[in-house]
Design a protein around this nucleic acid. Structure first.
Length: 559
RNA sequence: UGCCCGGUCGUCUAACGGCAGGACGGUGGUCUUUGGAACCAUCGAUGGAGGUUCGAAUCCUUCCCGGGCAACCA
């Protein structure tokens, strides 16, 4: 099938639809998109999908993508969120052609409203909130017209002006589009364009006392920016008819088109802003950037790279199936792919067991040559100190090992990575029977990890020299929720995984002493870890980004 | 139940009337100074019923299932 076809980039229906437009010369072959977040929360990996679509597609077609804050609801929005959003978009590696705000267009939008009123296509309505709902009818019954539907144009214009000036209290009036109270599409039953809100806006201050609704502001903002392709999620499908209505009935002079795609759902987490906010507010997590959160700031803190996120977006594709749930294993895979290629290998022990090499000279230290990354020869080598006393992983010793256990046990010989072969000759226990120290002997001729006589060992262990070890706090993260899909659970909060975070007091090799925050490493045989922002040279902190695939652990579990 | 949208391996996603393919996952293996990585093999799907057609995942009918729409949210 793909013998000699060069279909490298997996396509999707949005890419094809743009391609069709470009080929047909629609919009003169121009491609302009926009990413339109509301600054009322932090971006999560679902937004990353939208960012990847909007910025990525524009990039692919030599077009432009704007960042536009959909700031039409001053009661919920804040500059703190806007700043965080900008940071996250840039972190993902994208640059906006223009930085805009729906609030930049409040003036233009107001003029469009006057235009609509003059065309008898909009009116000022005095119905109460409850009456508006009643008059709208139901999904099965048509609505009925507002008594203000035929209000004279001059009166509408006057009322609009006075609404804007703050002469009326909130809820006294609304501005509505005059469309069709019997439309089978509820969105078309004279939707609201403006509501009175006498509150300051984070950008326009107290210049306005009325604020536009999403449906009214969005399409026209797209038109003002000359957007060609306006991508949004499936729940706005019914809004498209209204989007077109506003664009077609005003003199915006542009014809952007809206297309919908399925939002991302990821297993073992929640994605709604409301729930994310609740997790933060109620203290179920440490903050928006808690490494267990699906927020971009949380993923970043955990050590997930932007490259991995973009690769993930490409892997999951884009479609219109609305009940999909992507297995988080897909994300883990993308993370490992990236980090395997780039993260330097180091040695760290997170559950230490002391080992003494009985026949190694006391007080002696030697520098062992270690490769930094077998996947990348250019990463070079480093020296790691070795001595008579070492820490190994407690898991790497068993007094009574099962079949196929290749690690250390009484009488067994293993390799200490890059160093020597050692054989276990002694097991020390405390009064409770817990192993507290191992005695081993080493083969001095096996320096570097290979015996001159050609004998092989099955197991290779990572280690850290006791006198050179740097203590480190190692935070192990796991899925925030136990259920694959916690969202529909009545008591979703009680599904939080009690083991979603665990802190270990471990030791790392001295080369890590000055590792800067955010830097990623592979702790050999354990996983990928990133330096936490809390880390300081005298108290190192690492976050586990993702574990290594572990076929031994898997075999144990299934066996 | 009115309108709109959607159902393809366990999961995500291709196939645009012409051999149902890829990725993740699973399983088995090769290799290995990470039980990592890499490599190989393998498991595995068109919601049901009719119809159109030489030929249907694709077109039509119907049924079933899922999602969205009746905020002065976006």
């Amino acid at each position: 099938m793909s013998t000699n076809e060069t279909d490298e980039k997996p396509s999707n229906f949005l890419r094809e639809l743009i391609q069709k437009d470009v080929t047909a010369g629609t919009h003169a072959g121009r491609v302009a998109t926009r990413f339109p977040p509301e600054p009322n929360g932090y971006l999560h990996i679902g937004h990353a999908k939208s960012i990847w679509i909007n910025f990525g597609l524009a990039e692919d077609f030599g077009g432009t993508c704007n960042l536009r804050f959909d700031d039409t609801n001053p009661e919920k929005e804040d500059i703190e969120y806007a700043e965080a959003i900008k940071r996250d978009v840039e972190w993902l590696g994208y640059r906006w052609a223009g930085l805009h705000h729906a609030s930049d267009y409040f003036g233009r939008l107001y003029d469009f409203a006057r235009e609509l009123i003059e065309k008898r296509l909009a009116y000022v309505c005095s119905l109460t909130e409850e009456d508006i709902r009643l008059y709208r009818g139901t999904v099965k019954e048509p609505g009925k017209p507002s008594p203000d539907r035929e209000r004279p144009t001059a009166e509408n214009l006057d009322l609009l002006e006075r609404m804007k000036n703050g002469e009326f209290p909130d809820a006294q009036y609304t501005v509505r589009a005059k469309i069709d109270m019997a439309s089978p599409n509820m969105k078309m039953r004279d939707p609201l364009m403006y509501r009175i809100r006498r509150v300051p806006h984070w950008r326009t201050g107290d210049a306005w006392n009325i604020y536009p609704m999403y449906d009214y502001a969005h399409g026209l903002s797209d038109a003002i920016e000359n957007i060609t392709h306006s991508f949004c999620t499936l729940e706005f499908e019914n809004n498209r008819e209204l989007y077109d209505w506003f664009v077609d009935n005003t003199s915006s002079g542009a014809k952007p088109r809206q297309y919908e795609f399925a939002r991302l759902n990821l297993s073992h987490t929640v994605m709604s802003k409301r729930r994310l906010l609740q997790l933060v507010k109620e203290g179920h997590v440490k903050g928006w950037d808690d490494p267990r959160m699906p927020t971009l700031s949380g993923l970043r803190r955990r050590g997930v790279t932007p490259e991995a996120i973009r690769d993930f977006c490409e892997r999951i594709g884009v479609a219109r199936k609305d009940d999909s749930l992507v297995d988080v294993a897909m994300l883990d895979h993308a993370i490992r792919e990236d980090l395997n290629r780039r993260a330097p290998r180091v040695m760290a022990v997170i559950d230490p067991l002391k080992v003494v090499i009985d026949n190694y000279p006391e007080g002696q230290t030697e520098d062992i040559d270690c490769e930094n990354n077998p996947e990348d020869p250019a990463a070079g080598m480093r020296k790691v100190p070795f001595s008579r006393e070492l820490y190994i992983e407690r898991d790497d010793f068993m007094e009574a090992p099962p079949k196929k256990y290749f690690r250390l046990s009484p009488g067994a010989e293993v390799r200490l990575k890059h160093a020597y072969f050692v054989k276990c000759v002694r097991v020390e226990k405390d009064s409770a029977g817990k192993v507290i120290e191992l005695g081993v002997t080493y083969d001095p001729t096996s320096r570097g990890g290979e015996a001159p006589d050609g004998r092989k060992v099955k197991g290779t262990l990572h280690w850290v020299s006791v006198p050179h070890a740097r203590p480190a706090e190692v935070r192990l993260y796991d899925h925030l929720f136990r259920a694959e899909d916690p969202a529909p659970l009545e008591d979703w909060l009680s599904d939080i995984n009690p083991d979603s975070v665990a802190s270990k007091a471990g030791f790392v090799e001295p080369s890590l002493a000055e590792a800067p925050a955010g830097r990623s490493f592979q702790f050999m045989r354990l996983g990928y870890f990133a330096v936490d922002p809390d880390s300081r040279p005298d108290s190192l902190v690492f976050n586990r980004t993702v574990g290594l695939r572990d076929s031994w652990a898997k075999a144990q579990k299934s066996g």
